[in-house]
Structures are given as structure tokens and as C-alpha cells.
Design a protein around this nucleic acid. Structure first.
Lengths: 209, 209, 209, 209
DNA sequence: CGATAAGCGAGACGGTACGTCCAGTCTTCCA
DNA sequence: TGGAAGACTGGACGTACCGTCTCGCTTATCG
């Protein structure tokens, strides 16, 4: 971790921002396929060389854009599992909905997976992108999984519930609708989702009685 | 349903098969990006025109291949929900695993989403492909959702469980692991999945007591 | 030359006309390269088969069109060589000018060789078209060459003038301007042409004195 | 005439040569229609992009090839008009004969116009090619027309001879035979041509007496 | 009158060229 | 060494077009 002494002209840090701005704008306006490194470079007023020095591939660039677009999702742990879960999933859904709209403004906002699908495809195509994506999600998901684990310890979830698996059911349902069935994932759906997932949990049962 | 009078030289039905065979072989051997209509035409011994008359786009062709590759998944309804569910999800997982391997034989079979990611991306790019994909899945999912609905009516699922949503949790978890986290989805995982999803259900409770 | 008895359904003679009409219209409107047998067939309401039964090649069809467009040029032999020649060349020039305009209505009518160039190219490409074209011109040119021959016999041309060659000089100048230099060939030019060619001929000299 | 500052990687001048060499070889061996930009690129070991950056069209490329193939024809002005003219026309005819042979080795070398017809057609199809061709010929013809003009001033040609028109008669006859009648244009024909054109000129007359 | 032969409309098919587009690398000059 | 500009490789992509072939149907003549 020694600060290596760089020789020669140092990189212009501003440039990174300009490129990512341009890329974001382009990808939002045009969608993935009409998005091209060439176009980004032109729009950012930057040479392609400069761009490729930073991101070795179109897909890497896209990944950077998406990573930056990714919202920081906070997890609040009030002890009220359904409420905490609903709040969390609402934010995730909001983020997904934002990406859905990329490039197809007037198309029924739903129906299309937008960028997420492209990220998944990029992850499937390039091993290294896959690694980054997986790590990103692993990191991100640790917190909500922890939430579920604590709830189980508290006795708010049955013992044979696997927190990781439960989380994958919840997030998975959202992604499934976005990527596969094209159904909407608004607050109403999140509500149904939480209700179904927590139905007949000890906490729910206790509340009923 | 009137038999439309066909005029002109009829399409050679064999050709469809030859093209799809070649395409399947190619996509399995090379993966999505090294797969090309040109290559398919050559391998199938067919003119490009002939190919494009049927599938106007590389993505349409891929979709056709995948559709055909899609396994017919049978749903057996024995009344034993966990068992039926496990059997069904195992088959779905097997299908997904098969698609994972397309084109990257030596890459750790897991880790990559393979063709499914490409299909999702294609659906996001072309409105018409999206429509087909969505319809395909809607049709396919009707049966297992029916299974869940009947189970609820029997009292094997809590009343506030929404069958459609529950199904999306189950399938979604599989797709989430394939498309996003790259985790394996073998029988062991399916087991955990069913257990978690059905934990604290009336049936489960009954069995416990 | 025996009338061979044809078996089977006889050809529909009307069709020939309809095809040629359509072809002419198309070639005039679109020029050679945007002209296609497919288009002609569509416009004439005729199957491509029908068309190819008659003209085995796009170029053969074009040739037919041009042949039909070719004007019958009359040669009048009044004994006044300059006048006869001027009249004849004027008509030839008029025909060439008509073909110049094919497909490029608003382009400076001159400057482009239009169809003649395409005919020449077709003749260069297909030996049989070449043969037909050559024969057509040979037939057509016999009359004016005869005119010049008679003039020489009369003493209106020097003895060392070769009638065929002189004719080629006259016609050649017109074609040269059309095909190569793109210069206009109106009546004024024909005038200059005849004057120059007949300058210092016995007849001219006689008239001067 | 200011030296414009060049930015970016400069064009590789060698590449132009390699492409034109390959193109020439191909067009000579195969003729116009079997000649293809694809083939040229392959033979030259060059990407198609590189080729199309320079010549936007098959026809533009052909034009470049022909321009380069065009022989520099020298005009010698010895004061002996028939001799100078004969020498000049012989060279022109030789050039035309060379182009005749392109692609059809075993076809009677005569009879076909070869590349010249294609150039004329290309000039008719593309306005810009037309402009280049016309300019090329205008430049090329200035010298021999000057020769004729001086001859007239010397009194070797009648006064009512228009030098430009006379030149067009001479060159035109050659092109007419090549493009239209398919007749040979060897030295014998050039001889007849000069004789006929100069018959009854002052110089000729002088010599006769 | 039925068999046979050819014409015709419609459109699929093979083959191939054409020109475009894009990703990623390389080369030049300048800072 | 970084950056701007742009040439270069390599290859896919989808279109266009030519000429052939295969249907089903129609129209003539022959036996």
C-alpha cells in the first residue's frame, strides 16, 4: 500500500467526471445499444485514448456508470421487521425503476428492464465485470441480510428460515419482475411481497392473536 | 382459423430446423458475442437472406433458439406441496444451469448467467422480443401458480399468501442467483429455498406438532 | 424460317408491352442503378419469371428498352451535303439528348451521359449484348455512310476521304461529348461540326469561288 | 496554399499504393463486375474501413485506378501536322486498347470497350465522378487542341476549322469505335483517320501540287 | 374430352456485394 | 507520461439485388 511515485504527467482527475457524466447522459438518452465509447468521447470532449486508459471496455465503462448511479440504500433497524423491510425494498424498487427508463422515455416505463439487463449480460460476458458486480452486490446485501438474521434471533422469524435465502426471495422477486416478466414493482407490489413473505411468521402470528 | 390460401413457393420447413440446429450448436460452443448470423447461415448451408426472412435480427434468432431449448417443465400435483415444489424448482434450476454453460466450458460453470442474461438484455432492447419473452413466461408460470393457489385453498398455505407473489419469490430467488450473485443453484439450494419459503406454513406447523 | 408450331399456352403479347413500358418509366425516373428487374416486375404487375423468360438479364432488358427508345432517323439525300448532314446529325443529337435526361431531371441536363453510358457498359460486359448493339449501329449507320459515299462519287468530297471514317468522326464527336466531356450538343455545335468537317472540301471551295 | 496543421495520426501513404495496386491487378484479371472492394481490401491486406475512408464507392475506386493507369501522352510539335497528329493518336489508341483487355483475356481483344465504358457509366451515375472525369479530360486535351490551333495559325488548316471541334472528331472517332461499334483502332485506322481529317487541307493541297 | 405442355403470379432461395458501424489499438504531435 | 485527434484492423450486421426454383393455377393444342 505504498504510495507509488508516478512519473510523467499526472492524470487529469476532472476528466473522469466529465466522461462519466457524458456516458450517463448518453446511456439514459439512447439506451445501451446506441451508446458507444466513440459517442461518449465525443460528447465529453475527450480522446478515445483517454477513455480506454481508464476503462478497458465498453462494458467496464457502463459498469462504472451504473455503479455511480446505484443509490446508497440505508437500512434502518427499528425492530419492526415488516416496516423496516418495506422501507428497504421500496428504495431498491425505486432504484430499479429509475434504471428501467433509460433510453425509452415514452415506452411504457415498465415492460423494459433497461440497464440492469445489460449489466447482467456484461457480467455474463466478462469474467472480471462479473466479479465486480458480484462483489458489489455481496457488499450491499450484507446489511439487509444482517437485519433478517437479527430478526430471527429475536424470534421474529421461524428458526428454519435462512436469512440469506429469504433475502434472495425478496430481492429476487423484484428482479424477476424487472428482468423477466416486465411487471411493475411499485409500493403496492412491495406491500404484497412483504405480506406474503412474512405471512405466518411468529411475529405475524403474535400480532394476530 | 380459415386456411389461408398460400401463394408462391412455400417456405422450406426443413430450413428452419437446420438454421436453429446450427444456431444452437454455435451459441453453445461460442457464446453470445461470438455467435453471428453470418456464421449460422454458413454452418446451416443457407443464404443469409433466408435466415433474415425468418428472424430479422440476431436477437430474434437467439430468442428462437432459447425458446426451443426451453424445457417443458411438468408440474405434478400430488397434494404434498413441499415435494411438488421441490421437484418443479429442481427442473427449472436444471434448465438454468444448462444455459449457464453456453460458450464458457472451462469457466467455473457457475458464476456466469450465460444465455439468460442475453435474453433479458434482448428483451430490454427490442420491444417485440420483450413481448414474446413476457408472454412465454406468463404461459409457463400459470401452472405452478395454479398449484400454489390450490394449496392455499386446501389450507396448506396461509390465507394472506399471494400465490403469484410466492411463485415470484421462488423463481426469483433462482434467477437472482443466476443473473446477479452468480451463486450456484443446485438441489441443496432448492431445498433451502423451499424450506425457507414454506417455514411456518400451516402444513409445516401441522407436521411439527 | 418455318412457323414452328408452339405447344402449350402461348405467350401473352400484351405483357411484353407492359413490361417495357414499366421499365422505360422506371429507368427514366430512377436512372440505371436504382432500376431493378424486381421493380419493373412489380410496377408492371408481372412475375419475375415472366420477365426473365423474355430477357435473360437486366442488361438485356435495358437494351430492349433503349432499342425501342431509339428514334428512327431518316436520311434525306437532296444532294446538298452540308444541309443533309446537318439535318441528320441534329436528329441524332436530339436522340442523345433525350437519353441524357434519364433519371436526373433537375441535374443540369448536360453533363451526364445517362443511358448511353450504361448501354456501352452493358455491351462491354456481355458479349451477346455487345453483338446486338454493334449490329444495331452497323445497320443504322449504313445509310448515312452511303450518303457520304455518293457525295464523294459526285466529287463533293475529296477522294482521299474515307466515307466510313468521316462518318465516325461526325458521330464520334457527338458521342465523345456526351460520354466523355459532358459538353452540350445542341444545333450550334452540330453547325460547327459540319463546318469544320467539310471545310476545304471541293464543294465548299467551289461555293467560295 | 497554407500548410494546414495536420492533427491525429497521419494517413499511411503506402496504403494508398497497396490498395491501388491490388485494385488494378484485380480489375485487369477479373473485369469490372467481378471486381469488388471487398476483394481489393483482402488482396491489399487492408481493412475495408481504410479503403472506404479514401474512396467512398466502388466506382470512385475504379476511377482512381483508371486515372493512374491513364498514360501521360506527350505531344510533340514538329510543325509537320500529319505526323504529329498520327503519333499522338497512336498513343491514345494504345491506351484505349490496353483498357479494352481488362478482364476478358480470351475474348477477341477488340469488340469490348472494357474499362472505359465503365468509367463513362460511373461518371453518369455519380455527379462527383463525372466532374473529375470531365476535368481530367479537359486538362489532357488542352495540349493537342493547342497543337491544332497553332497549325491553323500557320495556315496548315483552313480558317473555318475549329480546333476544338476537329480534335473532338479525331478523338471521338476512336472512342466511338471502342465504345459503340467495337471496331479495332490500330495504326492502320489512325492512318485513315488522319488522312480523312486532313484531306483537302491547305497543307495537303500544297503537297499534292 | 382428357392429357400434355407451356405461360403466369407469387414468393422463397442461394449467393454475393455493398456500405455502415463499432470496438479496441496504434501513431502522431503537443503539453 | 497524459491528452487530443484520428487512422487502422477486424469483423459483424443488415440490406439490396440478380437470377433460379418451386408452388398452384390457367390456357392453349394434341391425341
Amino acid at each position: 500500500m505504498v504510495e507509488e511515485k508516478r512519473r510523467g504527467r499526472p492524470r487529469d482527475e476532472q476528466v473522469d467526471g466529465r466522461i462519466l457524466d457524458a456516458a450517463l447522459e448518453l446511456v439514459l438518452a439512447e439506451g445501451y445499444d446506441r451508446f458507444s465509447p466513440d459517442g461518449v468521447a465525443a460528447k465529453a470532449g475527450v480522446a478515445k485514448t483517454t477513455l480506454y486508459r481508464r476503462w478497458p471496455t465498453k462494458d467496464h465503462l457502463i459498469l462504472a456508470v451504473v455503479t455511480r448511479m446505484q443509490n446508497e440504500v440505508e437500512v434502518t433497524d427499528t425492530g419492526d421487521l415488516p416496516r423496516d423491510l418495506t422501507r428497504y425494498l421500496d428504495e431498491i424498487a425505486a432504484g430499479l425503476n429509475r434504471m428501467r427508463k433509460a433510453g425509452r422515455p415514452q415506452l411504457a416505463g415498465d415492460q423494459s428492464a433497461g440497464l440492469i439487463a445489460e449489466i447482467a449480460a456484461a457480467a455474463a460476458r466478462h469474467a472480471d465485470i462479473g466479479a465486480v458486480v458480484r462483489q458489489m452486490f455481496a457488499l450491499r446485501n450484507k446489511v439487509p441480510i444482517g437485519l433478517l438474521a437479527r430478526a430471527r434471533e429475536r424470534g421474529d422469524l421461524p428458526e428454519d428460515v435462512d436469512p440469506e435465502v429469504l433475502f434472495e426471495q425478496l430481492a429476487g422477486a423484484l428482479y424477476y419482475r424487472v428482468l423477466i416478466t416486465g411487471s411493475p414493482i411499485g409500493p403496492a407490489y412491495v406491500q404484497r411481497l412483504v405480506t406474503t413473505a412474512l405471512s405466518a411468521t411468529p411475529a405475524a402470528n403474535r400480532r394476530k392473536s
